[in-house]
Amino acid sequence: MKIYGVTGWKNNGKTGLMERLVAEFTARGLTVSTLKHAHHSTDVDQPDTDSYRHRAAGASEVVLASPNRVAIMQELRGSDEPSLTALLARMRPVDLILVEGYKREPHPKIEAHRAEAGTALIAPDDPTIRAIASDTPLDLDRPVLDLDATPEIADFIAKELGL
């Protein structure tokens, strides 16, 4: 499986870029999965559902299966957060896994950057960032792509990965 990341600070367009890249790559006939890191506490399960009640009762893992999807929820209950490598190992084989977040991990990445966010670029101090997708021209030592030019960004990633 090929792995490529989209990184950047909050409100710089990471999730929108991820969404557009998934649509672009799947339109090209590739199978794509995503893995997103959240720094805050998150819960995809809702109170008053059976699966929520199972977890609240103490289950370590709850698998919710239906004809449309399967959700696996694991409670860490004080254990360390799984590493990116461990999470990737659990995923089913696909052509491409796009990873959102995980700024400090060594996989290749593209940084999403919006001028109005007012945040500093990560790229100057991070050689794993191979290009920047920006809404404004930048003078850097690596490619700067238009943040809204999804096909060109996908072409860049595909070339990098030999897809």
Rank of each mutant, 00 (worst) to 15 (best):
E75A: 14
G78F: 03
R55N: 08
R28G: 13
S79T: 12
S41E: 15
R55T: 10
L64K: 00
S66I: 00
S51I: 04
H54D: 09
D43G: 08
D45V: 11
G16I: 07
E24Y: 03
D50I: 06
L35F: 07
K36I: 01
H37M: 02
L76D: 08
A59I: 05
T85Y: 00
A38K: 01
M18D: 05
L35G: 08
S79F: 02
G16K: 06
E24C: 14
A56F: 05
G13Q: 11
K14D: 05
T42P: 04
R69K: 05
K36L: 01
H54C: 01
H40G: 12
T42S: 07
V62S: 04
Q46P: 05
L30C: 09
L88A: 13
S41H: 12
D43Y: 07
E61F: 07
A23N: 05
H39E: 03
A38C: 13
L87R: 12
A71C: 06
S41G: 14
I72H: 00
A65N: 08
T26W: 06
E61T: 11
L17P: 10
P67H: 08
V62T: 10
S41A: 15
Y52C: 03
Q46T: 15
G13N: 10
R55L: 14
A86P: 12
A65C: 06
A86F: 03
D45P: 03
D80K: 03
S60G: 13
T26G: 01
L87T: 10
A65I: 04
A65R: 10
V63E: 03
P67V: 02
N68A: 07
E81F: 13
S60V: 06
A65D: 02
A89Q: 13
T42R: 06
D45C: 04
V70Q: 09
K36A: 11
G13A: 14
A59W: 02
L64Q: 06
F25V: 09
M73W: 02
F25T: 08
L87N: 08
R53H: 09
H37A: 13
L76P: 11
L88M: 12
V70A: 05
D43S: 00
A89H: 13
R53P: 03
S33P: 01
L84M: 12
L30D: 09
Q74I: 05
L35R: 04
V63K: 00
A38F: 06
D80Q: 06
S41I: 03
P82T: 08
G78W: 03
S79D: 14
H39T: 01
K36T: 10
V22R: 08
L88R: 13
R90D: 11
D50G: 00
G78S: 11
G58C: 03
V62G: 01
S33M: 01
H39G: 15
R77W: 03
H37P: 04
T15D: 07
T15R: 14
E19M: 00
E81R: 15
F25G: 06
L87I: 13
A86V: 11
E24V: 07
A56E: 15
R20M: 01
Q46F: 13
R90F: 12
A59Y: 00
P67L: 02
V44D: 04
T26F: 00
G78P: 09
A89L: 11
R20S: 05
S60F: 05
